[in-house]
């Protein structure tokens, strides 16, 4: 009895030999690869630059524009800048860690590395991001008493409410990112089962 795979093998080889004609230009491909690598690096640098600029902007604001005097305010500044600094460190670490996923390793090894990366992201997105957001929020509201020394009550209320709006937008975007990454994690878990 003939192996059904033999007929498939023949068809496979036949199909493969008809592919050779359409090979794209290698030099264009190399250029495309270079461009993609460059844009990936630029995107990461862009993300970190935005966070770093925010950090510098807020620091400069506190140093040169609004020099807070109260201990409570100093604690608030510390919480806000500390949260941002922690976020920058995490982004840098994530960037470095994602680079370590090696596509030339075996599928099981790469799968495992990707799974660990997204499990790490899950931990970051969960407790760590929430803690940073809480620290930042608490920090901001600790500035409110001293704000009221310089601004009218209406201005302080406006400031507090606008912070809430900004925080709501931030939470929404984080939630979307978390959902996307958690779907990826589910897919990875599902794929992982296929290796068993």
């Amino acid at each position: 009895m003939s192996d059904p795979l033999d007929s498939l093998k023949n068809k496979w080889q036949e199909a493969k030999s008809s592919t050779k004609e359409s090979r794209p230009d290698t030099k264009e491909l190399i250029q495309l690869a270079r461009n993609k690598m460059k844009s990936a690096v630029n995107m990461h640098i862009g993300n970190i630059a935005v966070l770093a600029l925010t950090f510098v902007g807020i620091s400069s604001f506190f140093k040169y524009v609004a020099q807070f005097q109260n201990t409570l305010s100093h604690l608030g500044i510390l919480l806000m800048l500390g949260g941002l600094a922690l976020r920058i460190i995490i982004e840098l670490y994530s960037m470095n860690r994602s680079k370590r996923i090696d596509f030339s390793e075996s599928a099981a090894t790469t799968q495992e590395a990707s799974l660990k990366f997204y499990q790490y992201r899950k931990r970051i997105h969960g407790p760590v991001t929430i803690t940073i957001l809480i620290a930042y929020t608490v920090g901001f509201y600790l500035l409110t008493p001293e704000f009221s020394d310089y601004f009218t009550t209406t201005q302080v209320i406006l400031l507090d409410v606008s912070y809430l709006l900004a925080a709501a937008i931030f939470i929404y975007s984080i939630r979307t990112a978390i959902k996307k990454e958690m779907k990826l994690l589910d897919e990875l878990n599902e794929l992982n089962n296929q290796f068993e």
Binding site: L29, I30, R34, K36, D102, F103, S104, E105
Partner: peptide, 28 residues
């Protein structure tokens, strides 16, 4: 092939190029 280009410096000769490219293709 873009991933192959990215991994060019990682080829250590532990396997044949064929197996190495297969790995990259499977992972992609």
């Amino acid at each position: 092939f873009i991933n192959t280009w990215r991994s060019m410096d990682k080829f250590k000769g532990a396997s044949s190029y064929k197996t190495w490219i297969y790995r990259i293709t499977v992972n992609t």
